[in-house]
Simulated assay, not measured.
Amino acid sequence: MKQRSQIKEAKELVNNVQSLRAGMRNYIRRKLKESNLDLTYEMLQVLAVLWSRGDLNQQEIADTISKNKASLTSLLDNLAKRKLIVRSEDPSDRRNKIISLTKMGRNHEKELDALMNGLYETLQTGLSKADITNASSVLKHMGENLWK
């Protein structure tokens, strides 16, 4: 009986995580539009990876944001059209392209960092530090269970 109850609770938690993820995407899309930034949520994901990790090849970016390499190509094309990234040949493997931020791409980081901080402030409203720490710990443990 306890097992069935725990499965029900785990299912509800997963549904809440999915709802949270959808809400976060909607929040970010809305804020991007309000800021008159010509970016999509997916483009922001690519930029965030480059801001945090530096120059990467296309496959590394695809793996990090859980997109296939083919769908990432159109995102990169759009970011390049906006002069936010450049592609260059990988000296160790000519088949790969290294994706780098342009000066304009780096300049967007501060503005978009403020947008993300707004998201985090909104998310934590009404929660204690212990609530957030506990929720993070639970989700991390559940994720680790999937990789065993």
Rank of each mutant, 00 (worst) to 15 (best):
N96C: 05
R82P: 02
R82H: 09
G54P: 08
N78M: 08
Q45H: 06
S66H: 15
K83N: 15
R94C: 03
L44H: 07
V86R: 04
K67V: 05
K83H: 13
R87T: 03
M43C: 09
L47E: 05
I98E: 06
K97L: 06
N96A: 09
I99P: 00
D90H: 03
L84N: 06
N78D: 14
S88H: 07
A62L: 04
R82V: 01
N68R: 09
R53I: 00
W51F: 10
L72T: 04
V46K: 00
R87N: 04
A62P: 03
Q45D: 11
S88D: 10
K81Y: 12
S66D: 14
K103L: 13
L44R: 05
M43R: 14
K103V: 13
D90N: 15
N68H: 13
I98W: 03
W51R: 07
M43E: 15
Q45L: 11
K83M: 06
G105F: 02
V46L: 05
K69A: 10
K83W: 04
N96E: 12
T73H: 09
V49I: 15
Q45G: 04
Q45P: 01
L76R: 03
L75M: 08
T64Y: 05
S74Q: 14
R94G: 07
L47G: 02
I98V: 14
N96G: 00
K103E: 15
A62G: 08
E89N: 07
I85C: 02
V46P: 01
V49G: 03
L79C: 05
R87P: 00
M43W: 04
D55P: 06
L44M: 13
L75P: 01
R95H: 11
K67C: 07
Q45N: 08
N96I: 02
R82S: 14
L84I: 01
E42M: 10
T73W: 10
T73D: 11
M43T: 03
N96Q: 15
L101M: 08
K103A: 12
N68V: 04
A70E: 12
R87C: 00
S92C: 03
Q59L: 13
I65E: 05
D93K: 08
S66I: 12
L44T: 07
V46Y: 00
D77L: 11
E60M: 07
S52P: 01
L76E: 04
A62K: 01
S88L: 06
M104E: 15
S66Q: 15
D63K: 08
M43Y: 07
E42I: 04
D77G: 04
L75G: 01
L44F: 10
E42Q: 10
K103Q: 13
K97N: 09
K69H: 10
L101T: 09
V86D: 05
S74M: 12
E89Q: 13
L101F: 09
L75K: 09
R82E: 14
D55A: 12
N78E: 15
R82T: 06
A70I: 09
L76H: 07
A70R: 11
A70S: 11
N78Q: 13
R82C: 05
L50A: 02
